[in-house]
């Protein structure tokens, strides 16, 4: 495939939300709309590599999402 277009392989393009939009991590579980940005279509929490947050901010997001899930403000799945 010399000179040709690369085929196959894993798609490594990632959308880094926080870095691109200069967002502040929502640490409050009541900010449901803010937390929804960091959930995937099936309700999974985006990884740090995707959100672009540091360890502390990512941890605060994780904690807030899990609190919101407990109160049925956010889904566990779907």
């Amino acid at each position: 495939m010399a000179g040709g277009k690369k085929r196959g392989g894993r798609n490594t393009r990632k959308v880094i939300v926080a870095k691109s939009q200069k967002l502040v991590a929502p640490a409050d579980y009541k900010d449901v709309e803010g937390l929804k940005k960091y959930l995937g279509p099936q309700g999974q929490i985006h990884a740090r590599s995707r959100t672009g947050f540091g360890a502390q901010d990512q941890k605060s997001i994780k904690r807030a999402i899990k609190r919101a899930r407990h109160l049925a403000l956010l889904p566990f799945v779907g």
Binding site: K30, R69, A72, L73, L74, P75, F76
Partner: peptide, 9 residues
């Protein structure tokens, strides 16, 4: 009162 909402589940 903090609202009346649909539950996520």
């Amino acid at each position: 009162h903090w609202g009346e909402h649909n539950l996520a589940y």
